[in-house]
Measured scan of single mutants.
Amino acid sequence: SKNWSEDDLQLLIKAVNLFPAGTNSRWEVIANYMNIHSSSGVKRTAKDVIGKA
C-alpha cells in the first residue's frame, strides 16, 4: 500500500469530518477531496481511503 504522510492522515481526518456518514458516494468524495488538497501528489482511491479510515 502507498505510504501515508502525517499531512495526508490529518487531511483524511478533516475530510471524514467534512463528509459525514450518509454523504452520497462518501468514500469517493473523500478520495477526490484528498487528491485535490494533498501536498504528497499521491492519488488515492476510495479503497485506499476506506483501508486507512
Score class of each variant (00 low, 15 high):
26 R>G: 02
25 S>F: 07
22 G>P: 08
27 W>P: 07
1 S>D: 03
50 I>K: 13
17 N>S: 12
52 K>N: 06
23 T>V: 06
52 K>E: 13
12 L>C: 03
25 S>V: 06
7 D>S: 14
17 N>F: 06
23 T>N: 05
23 T>D: 09
6 E>A: 12
13 I>L: 15
21 A>N: 08
16 V>N: 11
38 S>G: 12
12 L>T: 01
3 N>D: 14
3 N>F: 13
22 G>L: 05
33 Y>E: 02
35 N>Y: 02
24 N>K: 13
47 K>L: 11
35 N>H: 04
51 G>E: 14
21 A>M: 14
27 W>E: 09
30 I>L: 02
1 S>M: 05
12 L>G: 02
39 S>A: 15
38 S>H: 04
2 K>Y: 10
50 I>G: 10
3 N>W: 04
47 K>A: 14
29 V>M: 15
21 A>C: 10
5 S>T: 13
33 Y>G: 00
49 V>F: 02
16 V>I: 15
38 S>L: 01
24 N>E: 15
33 Y>A: 02
11 L>S: 04
2 K>R: 09
31 A>D: 01
46 A>M: 08
35 N>T: 06
50 I>S: 12
18 L>H: 07
40 S>H: 10
48 D>Y: 00
18 L>A: 14
34 M>D: 01
39 S>Q: 11
11 L>A: 02
27 W>S: 05
24 N>G: 07
4 W>E: 01
28 E>Y: 01
43 K>Q: 08
7 D>T: 13
34 M>Q: 03
35 N>C: 03
24 N>L: 10
15 A>D: 02
12 L>Y: 09
30 I>N: 00
36 I>Y: 10
16 V>H: 07
4 W>Y: 06
29 V>R: 14
53 A>K: 07
31 A>I: 02
18 L>M: 15
3 N>P: 09
4 W>C: 02
8 D>F: 03
9 L>G: 09
22 G>F: 04
51 G>V: 09
26 R>H: 01
1 S>N: 06
31 A>C: 08
30 I>C: 05
7 D>G: 13
31 A>R: 05
10 Q>C: 04
48 D>V: 02
14 K>R: 11
41 G>T: 11
10 Q>P: 02
47 K>P: 10
33 Y>W: 11
49 V>E: 01
36 I>S: 14
9 L>S: 15
33 Y>L: 01
40 S>M: 04
29 V>T: 14
14 K>V: 08
47 K>V: 11
16 V>L: 12
53 A>N: 04
17 N>M: 08
27 W>G: 10
41 G>N: 10
13 I>A: 15
1 S>W: 02
10 Q>S: 09
43 K>P: 08
38 S>Q: 09
25 S>N: 05
20 P>R: 05
24 N>V: 12
34 M>H: 03
28 E>V: 07
3 N>T: 10
2 K>L: 06
9 L>M: 14
34 M>R: 00
16 V>M: 15
13 I>P: 04
46 A>F: 05
13 I>F: 14
6 E>V: 10
2 K>I: 15
12 L>D: 00
4 W>P: 01
10 Q>T: 06
30 I>M: 04
2 K>G: 09
19 F>G: 00
39 S>I: 08
14 K>D: 12
20 P>A: 04
40 S>G: 09
9 L>Q: 15
7 D>F: 06
47 K>G: 12
36 I>E: 15
21 A>L: 11
43 K>C: 12
31 A>F: 00
43 K>G: 06
